[in-house]
């Protein structure tokens, strides 16, 4: 992909983000932060590539270990973030109508 296509995706996604986030009810702003935390750990993709790659260059070995460490950090966030969001969301209940 060339730079302009990537930039287009980015700019359009910013607009999508703007409208989607304004529609989030203020009562769920804390779960919003927790879940955005979890999804921003999609950076794990980069970590996996670094960990999985071999390389002819000397830096490849260091890069592998940095990648593995980043995989651990991102995994903490992914599992922790989604789990804590699920835990919070499970608490939001409607009034029981009798």
């Amino acid at each position: 992909m060339d730079f302009i296509s990537i930039l287009s995706i980015f700019v359009l996604a910013c607009f999508v983000g703007y409208y989607v986030v304004w529609s989030v009810t203020p009562a769920l702003h804390t779960p919003l932060m927790a879940v955005t935390n979890a999804i921003s750990s999609v950076i794990i993709v980069g970590a996996l590539i670094a960990a999985a790659a071999g390389s002819a260059s000397v830096g490849g070995s260091t890069a592998k270990w940095l990648g593995l460490l980043a995989v651990v950090l991102a995994s903490v966030n992914i599992f922790g973030g989604f789990a804590v969001t699920a835990r919070m969301l499970a608490m939001y209940k409607k009034k029981e109508r009798r």
Partner: peptide
Amino acid sequence: NSAMIITGALVGSS
């Protein structure tokens, strides 16, 4: 990576 870019934009604007 489009998944990372879309997510980054979402989280950034959020």
